[in-house]
Amino acid sequence: MRLNMKLAQRAGIIAFALWLPLSAIAGEAVPIAEDPVLEQRMIALSEDLRCLVCQNESLAGSRSELAQDLRQEIRDQLRTGKSNDQVIEYLTDRYGDFVLYKPPLKPLTWLLWFGPFVLLVGAGGGFFLYLKRRGERIAGESLSEEEKKRVEALLGNNGNKS
């Protein structure tokens, strides 16, 4: 156990020694992007945009040349102080709503955006009504069953024969 620890320590020291000169020369790597904050904004924005050339990939994920150009364009526009909405407008003016992974809310997409929740409320309400009616029907049925039994009991064996 002690031996292992020593070995590990030594390995650590050797690795550290090996690593030290290299790091002293080369130092810290730098981010690809000149402005990491701007880059974050660009990535967040382009994740919700669709790459046009690809089958189904976001602008952020695509390696196609057009996607790279568009990312650069978005970067440039953000750098000049444009808002996210202005950048999105720039893109939809040229490529249409197709580039938006999040379809804008307008009469044509009402069904898309509200449909699931309307359905949920409708199904919930429907289920509640069904339960109420079901309870009444079962109550009715079981009563008549009881009545049947009573009739059977009254008729005795005759009832069973028929």
């Binding site: 976001s58 709503d97 992974y101 379809p103 044509l108 997409t109 069904l111 898309l112 699931p116």
Partner: peptide
């Protein structure tokens, strides 16, 4: 139903000639 709606909505609009949209992760 919402997954089905989101998946097919672009097709519905296109089939009705109402334009092309994309429905993706944000939706």
């Amino acid at each position: 139903a919402s997954v089905l709606l989101g998946t097919l909505y672009p097709l519905f609009l296109d089939a009705l000639g109402l334009g092309k949209i994309s429905v993706g992760p944000p939706y």
